[in-house]
Design a protein around this nucleic acid. Structure first.
Lengths: 221, 221
DNA sequence: CTCCATCGCAGCGTATACATAAGTGGGGAG
DNA sequence: CTCCCCACTTATGTATACGCTGCGATGGAG
């Protein structure tokens, strides 16, 4: 694999996992030394991270890991609302029912999975990821999907900050189920509204979770 | 200005203006020689163009100017629908009425401007750009605005392909007027629906214009 | 003691050198 | 004559060298 690709994935992973905390400086020389490659591929990686919105130019010459404030999380969800609703609408119109029927069956087992410990949890997340992928495929709109993927990247950071409890995951599964049912039924309006509801609940719980964990807004896990 | 910035703007301009036609190869060495800079800044410029979606990796080592088919234009408008509707909704909620009242006055003069030749047309487009900027500002959501800007970039290419006639521009102005009125009134729902209508009409005319100009889909201006 | 200026240094932007791989063209064999 | 293989060319990926700019530290002057 290309060094620039490795550098990009490595840095992205560290940002998403919180190893590189919001506000951390991303200096070319430092990262090049740390990652064991020259500045050139690091440069490309940092440019991609900035394009992704995971890094922000604090001043002309200093790049930092983007902040992840309640305000920016809210903004992220306003963006996702727009994108996911549209994607759900289009997917409901263009979907292959068979693919979503299969997903429906897998999602129906979510409550059981959530009682099955770590492995079950992992399987649950796999199902949710599969749902995203199927919606992307059914949406049949490369530009929309690209925007969606970018937004979901940021959501991965939020998810890590706000570990949802099993209760929330169970509720989320049933919200997902409704979206899938709407798509299978070809009900674009319901699919969009169900997506809105899901994102609304997801944001509410994320903000509450972060609020309860960092009441002063500064404590670090 | 940095060489990479100049290279990026130069190449972007040429793509938007159609000087670099869809499918044209973007080779580092060639562009470096042509633009009179070394490969390094060209490399960065090309990476940014790819992130913008204006260039696409045809294979692992060949980058091309993105295609602009009716299908991709339709996809672009599906994305803009999602983003512009959300932006209009948020802007209607968060706007400063004074700023949009001013825009309202300027837009009201659009019909007169469209009878005032080239200079008037230029002024008209300035007003439309100002509207976009005011909506962006009122939206108060950096992520949404970033996605919107990216989408509007592609729209600039479409606009060039499909020169709208004065009739269409007059209609577009009144559509814009309704959006502004809705935002001033704080009517988020109307602002969103008016945006949807505007984009729908805009897409319809763009496709018709392209269709009538390139019935075989291959003729080049 | 404080403030300003100047020197130094660290990091970035650009150019270039080098390594590698993919595409191409030519030549040979069937 | 056609097809396949090999070598060469060329472009990309990476490393490094160089110049410049901006920030900080230090010293001198008020």
């Amino acid at each position: 694999m290309r060094a620039s690709e490795r550098a990009y994935r490595e840095l992205r992973e560290e940002i998403l996992d919180g190893v590189l905390a919001p506000g951390a400086a991303l200096a070319e020389v430092e990262q090049a030394n740390r990652l064991g490659v020259s500045r050139t591929p690091v440069r490309e990686a940092l440019a991609r991270l900035e394009a992704d919105g995971l890094a922000t130019a604090a001043s002309a010459r200093v790049l930092q890991v983007s902040e992840l404030s309640p305000a920016s999380i809210t903004a992220l969800y306003e963006l996702r609302e727009a994108l996911e609703e549209q994607a759900a609408r289009l997917a409901a119109t263009r979907r292959d029912p068979a693919r979503f029927t299969e997903l429906h069956d897998r999602l129906a087992e979510a409550p059981a999975l959530l009682d099955a410990g770590e492995a079950g949890l992992r399987t649950y997340y796999d199902v949710v990821d599969a749902l995203d992928e199927e919606i992307d495929a059914a949406t049949a709109n490369p530009m929309l999907v690209a925007a969606l993927r970018s937004a979901r990247l940021h959501s991965a950071r939020v998810r890590r900050l706000a570990r949802h409890n099993p209760e929330r995951l169970r509720a989320a599964a049933s919200e997902h189920l409704l979206i899938v049912e709407a798509i299978i039924a070809g009900d674009a309006s319901l699919a969009a509204h169900a997506s809105h509801v899901h994102l609304h609940m997801s944001l509410r719980h994320a903000l509450a979770s972060i609020e309860s964990r960092q009441p002063d807004g500064h404590r670090v896990a």
